[in-house]
Design a protein around this nucleic acid. Structure first.
Lengths: 222, 222
DNA sequence: TAGGTCGCTATCCTTTCGTATAGGATCTGC
DNA sequence: GCAGATCCTATACGAAAGGATAGCGACCTA
C-alpha cells in the first residue's frame, strides 16, 4: 500500500528530519487484543523504545495524563469510549496536542477525511501491512499528516456525489429523525427534506429512507 | 478470555485426542493485513506446519479447491465476498466439510450463535489474545466447536428480549423493505408486521423503523 | 380446567412518506 | 450576461407507516 504525506490546512512541525526511532514512545489503543499485540510487536521489532497498549479510550487518556504525552497515539475508531470522532479531540488534549492518529478496520475515504479534518495526525487502515504501518508511524511521530494514497484516490462514487445538504439530511435519517425534525434542525421546510431524501435515495440506490440509512452506514458515509 | 467447548446439535468428529500441531494446515482469510500477519506469525511460532493467508473469500475458496482442504479455515466475517454468513457455506463446501471458523471484530453473541448454527466450527473475536487464539485454533482443528465463554454468557438484554418473529421483521426492516414486502416474505398480514415493528421499536428504544434498523445494526443484532 | 402469555388478525384513524410538477434564488464558469 | 448546476419552496395526492383497541387460537403451567 502506497502512502503519501498530506499537507492540508495545518502547520506541520517536523520534530526531526530523520525521526529518531530510538527514544520513541508510542501508545496503541485498540480493543482487539490481536491487533494490539501485532502492532506492538512490530514496533518493538523496529526499535521503538516504549510501546504502551490499552483496550479503550478511558485507559488511553489516563495513560497520557499520568505517564506523560506520547510521540504518537494510535486510536482505534471503533473502540469503547470513542463515540465516533469525539474521542479524538479528548485524546489530542490529553496528549498535549501531540500527534494522535486514527486506526480503523472499516476503511473509507470519507472517514479518513473527517478524521484528518478533526485534527488527526493520520489515518491507518487495518488493511495495511505491518511494514507500511511502521513507516507510517515514523512519519506521523515526526509531525507529518498521513493517509494511505489509494484511500485518497478512492472513487468519488461513494460519497462524492452527495451534496452537503444531502449529507446533512442523511445524518438526520440515520438518527431516525422524521422529515419534520430534520427540517427544524437544518432550518428548512419539510418539503425540501423530502426532496433531499428522494434524491439521495436515488443516488445511493436505496428503496426508501430506512434503506438509505443502512446503506450509508454500510459505506461509512456517516 | 476464557473458552468453553460447545457440543450443540452437531456430530463432533474428534480427529485426535491431542491434536497434532505438527502437520497442521491452516488458512487465514482476512482483508486486514495486520490481522493476517499477526495470526500467521503466532501460529507459525506454535509450530503449525502450513499457514496460508488470503485477503478475500474468492481467493480462500480457490486456495482450498486447488491446494486441497485445510485442517481449519479462519474466515473474517467482514471481508470482500462474504456477504454476511453466506460465504461460510461456500467455504465449508470448498473445504470438504472440514472445520471453518468465523473471525470477527464486531463481536456479539447473536452473531456467534448464528454462525455456529450455520455450521461454523467456532467463533473467534478479534478481542482475543494471541494465546487464546492459538488454543482455540487447536480445538477447532480437532473437530470441536468453540466459542468464547464470556460471549455466550453475554446478557440477553441485547437481543434476548426480541422474539423470533420480531427478529425476522427487524431483518426485513434493515433491508429497507416495506411492511407489505415483509408480510409477503413471512407469509403474514401487513397489520401483524406493523404490530411487530411497533413492539420491537419500543423494545429497542427506537423512534421509528429507520431508527430501529440503525440500532439493530449498531448492536450487531442482524 | 382455569388463567396466563404469545403470536396473529382485524378495524379505524392520524400522521408521515414518497412522488410529481412547477417555480424562484444563488452561484459558477464560459 | 448567460447557461447550468445547486438549493430551496410550494401544492397536491396516493401510499405507507404509526397508533389504539379488541378479539381469537395455541400453548404452557399451576
Amino acid at each position: 500500500m502506497q502512502s503519501v504525506p498530506l499537507a492540508r490546512q495545518r502547520q506541520l512541525t517536523v520534530v526531526s528530519q530523520a525521526p529518531r526511532v530510538a527514544g520513541m514512545r508510542v501508545m496503541i489503543a485498540d480493543d482487539h487484543d490481536l491487533v494490539r499485540e501485532a502492532i506492538a510487536s512490530f514496533l518493538q521489532g523496529e526499535g521503538v523504545a516504549e510501546v504502551v497498549t490499552v483496550p479503550n479510550l478511558q485507559d488511553a487518556i489516563r495513560a497520557a495524563d499520568e505517564g506523560g504525552s506520547f510521540d504518537l497515539v494510535l486510536l482505534d475508531y471503533n473502540m469503547p469510549g470513542m463515540n465516533g470522532l469525539e474521542g479524538l479531540a479528548l485524546m489530542i488534549a490529553a496528549n498535549d496536542q501531540r500527534p494522535v492518529a486514527i486506526l480503523s478496520g472499516t476503511a473509507s475515504r470519507a472517514l479518513a477525511e473527517q478524521a484528518i479534518k478533526a485534527g488527526a495526525a493520520g489515518f491507518v487502515p487495518k488493511t495495511m501491512s505491518s511494514r507500511s504501518m511502521v513507516s507510517a508511524v515514523r512519519f506521523m511521530a515526526a509531525g507529518e499528516v498521513y493517509a494511505p494514497f489509494n484511500f485518497m484516490q478512492q472513487a468519488d462514487t461513494s460519497s462524492g456525489n452527495l451534496s452537503q445538504r444531502e449529507t446533512d439530511v442523511l445524518r438526520g435519517l440515520s438518527e431516525g429523525k422524521s422529515n419534520k425534525e430534520i427540517a427544524r434542525d437544518l432550518d428548512l421546510q419539510e418539503v425540501t427534506i423530502k426532496l433531499h431524501v428522494k434524491t439521495l435515495s436515488r443516488k445511493l440506490n436505496a428503496k426508501n429512507r430506512t434503506h438509505a440509512a443502512m446503506i450509508a452506514r454500510e459505506m461509512n458515509l456517516i
